[in-house]
Design a binder for these strands. Structure first.
Length: 299
DNA sequence: CTAGCACGGCGTCAAGCCTG
DNA sequence: CAGGCTTGACGCCGTGCTAG
C-alpha cells in the first residue's frame, strides 16, 4: 500500500470507525442520537439507493482492506458503497436538537461575517458587499443598490443606485454600476468570497477579472460584460470557461467548508465518545456495587 | 544531510441529495 | 426537473519526524 493509498484508506474509514465505536457504546439504555440519526439516514437511503447498513459497510470494508492489501482496489465500487452519507450539518444539527450542549453548525455565516450589525437593520438586503474603500453595498430586493459609509456611530452617507437590468434581467447579465477605484487605477467591485471583480484592460469588449482584494494577481477568470450579446465561437468558449471557473471557485469554497464541518463533526463525535466512556464506566461500577449488595459474601 | 514516511490540507471530479 | 449544494475519492504538495 502506498502512502497515498494508506492515507485515503484511513480517511475513508475514519468516519465509519468512529461510528462503530459509538455503536459499540450504544446499548439501548444509553441513547446515541448520532448513531440513531445516521442509521436512520442509512435506512431511508437503503430503501432508495441500496446503500448498505453499517454492518454491511463494515463487512465490505473488511473485504476492502484485504483486497487493498493485495493491491486490487475497485475504486468505483468503493465509491458506490461509501457514497451518500447524510451531511455533517444535518447529523450534527439533529444531534444538537437531541442532546443539549452539542454545538450547532450554522447554516451559512460567510456573509454575516464582517458585516456590521447595524447594516442588517437598515433594510432588507439580499446581499451585502464591502468595497475596497470600506463602504458597504447592499443589494436589496428589486435590484436597488444601497451604498453606505460605516461611521463611528452608525451608517452614514447612504446612497441608492438601481441596476440597469432590474426588473426582468436576462440570466447572467447583471451590470454593476458602482465600483471603487483601487490603487492600481482599476475599478473594483466586491463579490462574496472575499474576492473582487476588477475591470480589466481595455479591449474591444470590456472584461472583468476575479481577483483577491489584496493582490493584483488575476485568477484567470474573464467575465464578459454583456453575456447576452455573445455570438462568436470565441465568445461562447470564453463564456464556457468563465462558467467553469466560477463553478470550480464555488466548489473550492464548498470543499473548504465541507472539510471544516467534517472536522467539527469528528470533534463532536470524539467528545461524545469520551462522555459515553465515562458514563459507561460509571454504570459498570454501579452494577458491581449492586451485585455486591444483592449477593453478600457468606463468611 | 538526505531519503522515506506519515500526515494534513487543497483542488478537482463525480455522484447523490435538495430545493425552487 | 434543472441547477445548485454536499461530500467521498483521488492525486498532489508541503511539512515534520526519523533512521541511516
Amino acid at each position: 500500500m502506498n502512502k497515498c493509498g494508506r492515507k485515503k484508506y484511513i480517511k475513508t474509514n475514519l468516519r465509519q470507525m468512529t461510528m462503530e465505536t459509538i455503536e459499540s457504546q450504544q446499548d439501548g439504555s444509553v441513547s446515541d442520537s448520532v448513531a440513531e440519526s445516521e442509521s436512520a439516514h442509512m435506512q431511508t437511503q437503503t430503501g432508495q439507493n441500496s446503500v448498505p447498513t453499517l454492518a454491511q459497510v463494515a463487512t465490505i470494508a473488511e473485504k476492502d482492506e484485504s483486497a487493498e492489501s493485495e493491491g486490487v482496489i475497485d475504486s468505483h465500487k468503493r465509491r458506490e458503497i461509501l457514497s451518500r452519507r447524510p451531511s455533517y450539518r444535518k447529523i450534527l444539527n439533529e444531534l444538537s436538537s437531541d442532546v443539549p450542549g452539542v454545538p450547532k453548525i450554522e447554516e451559512e455565516k460567510s456573509e454575516e461575517e464582517g458585516t456590521p450589525p447595524n447594516i442588517a437593520t437598515m433594510a432588507v438586503p439580499t446581499s451585502i458587499y464591502q468595497t475596497s474603500t470600506g463602504q458597504y453595498i447592499a443589494i436589496a430586493q428589486g435590484g436597488t443598490i444601497q451604498i453606505s459609509n460605516p461611521g463611528s456611530d452608525g451608517v452614514q452617507g447612504l446612497q441608492a443606485l438601481t441596476m440597469t437590468n432590474s426588473g426582468a434581467p436576462p440570466p447572467g447579465a447583471t451590470i454593476v454600476q458602482y465600483a471603487a477605484q483601487s490603487a492600481d487605477g482599476t475599478q473594483q467591485f466586491f463579490v462574496p468570497g472575499s474576492q473582487v471583480v476588477v475591470q480589466a484592460a481595455t479591449g474591444d469588449m470590456p472584461t472583468y477579472q476575479i481577483r483577491a482584494p489584496t493582490t493584483a494577481l488575476p485568477q484567470g477568470v474573464v467575465m464578459a460584460a454583456s453575456p447576452g450579446s455573445l455570438h462568436s465561437p470565441q465568445q461562447l468558449a470564453e463564456e464556457a470557461t468563465r462558467k467553469r471557473e466560477l463553478r470550480l471557485m464555488k466548489n473550492r469554497e464548498a470543499a473548504k467548508e465541507c472539510r471544516r464541518r467534517k472536522k467539527e463533526y469528528v470533534k463532536c463525535l470524539e467528545s461524545r465518545v469520551a462522555v459515553l466512556e465515562v458514563q459507561n464506566k460509571k454504570l459498570i461500577e454501579e452494577l458491581e456495587t449492586l451485585k455486591d449488595i444483592c449477593s453478600p459474601k457468606t463468611d
